[in-house]
Design a protein around this nucleic acid. Structure first.
Lengths: 233, 233
DNA sequence: TGTACATCAGTGAACGCGCGTTCACTGATGTAC
DNA sequence: TGTACATCAGTGAACGCGCGTTCACTGATGTAC
């Protein structure tokens, strides 16, 4: 349901469809292993067995165990972005409302898929380095947030050092965009605050504390939206 | 240096000292494996070999591999709290300054010991549940922060739902403390914001973005300190 | 429509590896009289 | 100071396990004429 493979299956030869289907099944089993036993519990041999195949057969679908993880990771980035964007339709709502929708969708996805959230934002795998396109996927979710943030009352007229350092990033990721200087800073703060609450929640660090994490999350987002400019010292 | 074992070694029999020393060495090797190969790379057999022992010998020191992790985790919580507290001496500085010191120490520890930070705040080990005293250790670092926060200008007179839910937590953790109703909320937000920046930084998510994470961290802390009250919706 | 060839999914055997954990044991260190 | 006994760190063999990955191969599916 939250998976994006199914869409691209049409318009291809039967063999390609068969391949895509098998690859998708393998990934789905990998995700269930991930959910049940963590990253260390994902095993090519076990996946193959569950599909009724032998271990080496999977090398038709993934170059190695690490390649499988690369796919799982970039799928997760894409699905998270898709989900957030899908939950913030173009219906003329005001920017604060739309930001809040994005935020809630972010959290909802993470709570629905905690192992996948942790796969991308938890402990990184040693020796693993994300391919370049992954970084782009990660950024996709930020694009609508920046658009909404640009419509909020500005934080202040002058840019400080952080804003200056972020300027090339805007130019690189969205050439031609005419954002106020503090927008990227706010976009990153938006992401950082959501991640702060959500990652602790998903990892179970709030369970003993007796409060509803949703309230904390909403408060953090609210403060971000209302946020006044704070120079960094 | 950041380890806390060495202190308690005195005043014990030679055999106890020998035991403590060996156990400490085993943990140190475990931490180096953790740093180098991640949690999955921590192996009792490999630790034993590096100490010049055989595998089973380690069962004199740890009940199981999981017990070893329990120790590594609670040591990490303690060391992080110790480090933060040690860097915020009682010298009469104003509360904002002292909060900032705590925050900077938190980040400094995490950057110095990224694998240990991720051990406690990264992807949780499946099937592992922290023993009760661990939760207490985790809370230790919050105590001085709450004290400082209580001295800041209050956020507002009335308590909202989140504040109400947090009241029992104060009563439980610090019976008798007479904090304004919004202090615990601010303490948790303090922790959450530090974690938001620090965990993304430690996991390398900022490396491609070309800005100095220290600036972002300072800005987040500043905003928390200045923080105005935001009802959650 | 039928034949010849190319593609490619999957097999089965094998390699080499390390893992956590148990158990009965040896031998050194510590303790009590 | 010396002897008898208890404690306990560490050994070595063994159990059972699953892992990723390679390789030469079979046999089914697809393609070209």
């Amino acid at each position: 349901m939250l998976s994006r493979e199914a869409a691209n299956v049409a318009t291809s030869t039967p063999r390609e469809r068969y391949r895509a289907q098998n690859q998708q099944e393998a990934k789905a089993i990998a995700l269930s292993q991930l959910a049940e036993s963590g990253p260390a519990g994902v095993s090519l041999n076990a996946i193959a067995k569950q599909m009724g195949l032998t271990g080496p057969a999977l090398y038709r679908y993934f170059g190695s165990r690490e390649d499988l993880f690369t796919e799982l990771i970039s799928d997760s980035y894409e699905d998270l972005a898709d989900f957030a964007i899908a939950n913030d339709p173009e219906d003329g709502a005001d920017p604060a409302t739309r930001l809040r929708r994005l935020a809630r969708a972010y959290r909802a996805w993470a709570l629905a898929e905690p192992h996948r959230y942790l796969l991308i934002y938890g402990t990184p795998m040693v020796g693993y380095s994300a391919p370049a396109h992954t970084t782009r996927s990660a950024y996709r979710m930020m694009v609508p947030a920046l658009r909404h943030l640009a419509l909020l009352p500005p934080l202040g007229p002058e840019a400080d050092e952080l804003d200056r350092q972020l300027k090339p990033l805007i130019a690189d990721r969205e050439p031609g965009a005419d954002y106020p200087p503090t927008v990227m800073r706010r976009g990153i703060a938006f992401w950082v605050r959501m991640h702060g609450v959500v990652s602790l929640e998903v990892a179970g660090h709030f369970t003993q504390m007796g409060f509803d994490p949703a309230l904390l999350f909403e408060a953090e987002v609210t403060e971000l939206i209302k946020g006044t400019r704070t120079s960094y010292m």
